[in-house]
Simulated assay, not measured.
Amino acid sequence: MKCLIVAAGQGARLREKGELKPLISIKGTPLIERVIGRARDAGVDEFVVVSGYRGAELRSHLDDFSAREQVRTTHVVNDEWDRANGVSLLKAKRHLDEPFLLTMCDHLVDPEIFRSLMAAPFEPETVTLAVDFNIDNPLNDPEDVTRVKCSDGRIEHIGKVIRDFNAFDTGVFLCTPIMFAALEESQANGDDSISGAMNVLARWRKARVFDIGSHPWVDVDDPIAFGKAERLLESGQL
């Protein structure tokens, strides 16, 4: 199975740690290499990486990494990287005509999340989001994460500022190509984000959820989250 990694944004909130977010070193290893390594541990055998901000630098690094580690990697260039993250997915559409994993270059997750999501049964023409129902866990900031309202295994609503929610979006998805139709519909309505597409899928009753249980994950989006990820890596929990 292929894994699409979104790595196009500027990552300004982590600028004090490095100029190019995917290549910021955490415990001696660039973030994006850790993301790729975890997906490979779960059985992913090919990657599609969307780059944008300082993309030539990232692509050069990944070419060296891919050659060294024998990782099959396809590059997609997003020259509209200052728009919302759904634009990056649409740029990769022609490379993904079968079910695929989707994740972000700054989300460090337990490989078991990838593994279990890929092994779980899913319906054709749906998208499944791995969600964390442990919303009282201090590991991820509830004011920063994307919130999800789930019911009977389906997404009802998703967004940063929704008030009625019972889970967090981990940034890990199992997609079918219907995701691209939802992205196009959302974009036509003025929302370029992945969450916008998931809300479209929710209206179509095509958005599913997968409970990650107690498996850890961190959105390494600012210095505080970076410190939490470092401590989890040091302790062997992540």
Results as ranks from 00 to 15, higher is better:
M1P: 10
K2I: 06
V6S: 12
E16L: 07
K17L: 14
E19D: 15
L20R: 14
S25C: 12
R34A: 08
G37T: 03
R38K: 12
A39T: 04
A39V: 04
G43E: 01
V50S: 03
V50F: 05
Y53H: 07
R54L: 14
G55F: 05
L58C: 09
L62A: 12
D63Y: 14
F65V: 10
F65Y: 14
F65T: 03
S66V: 08
V71C: 02
R72F: 02
T74F: 07
N78T: 05
D79K: 05
D79H: 10
R83Q: 10
G86R: 00
G86S: 01
S88L: 09
L90F: 04
K93L: 04
H95W: 10
L101I: 05
L102H: 08
T103S: 08
C105L: 13
H107K: 07
V109E: 08
V109H: 07
P111D: 01
F122R: 10
E123K: 13
P124E: 08
V127C: 01
V127Y: 03
L129Y: 07
L139M: 03
P142M: 04
T146E: 11
G153T: 05
R154A: 11
I155T: 04
I158S: 05
G159H: 06
K160N: 09
K160R: 15
I162L: 02
R163L: 14
L174G: 00
A181I: 07
E185N: 12
S186I: 00
N189C: 08
N189G: 09
G190C: 05
D191L: 01
G196C: 01
A197T: 06
A197R: 11
S214N: 13
W217L: 00
G227Q: 14
G227N: 10
A229T: 13
A229P: 11
E230M: 03
L232C: 09
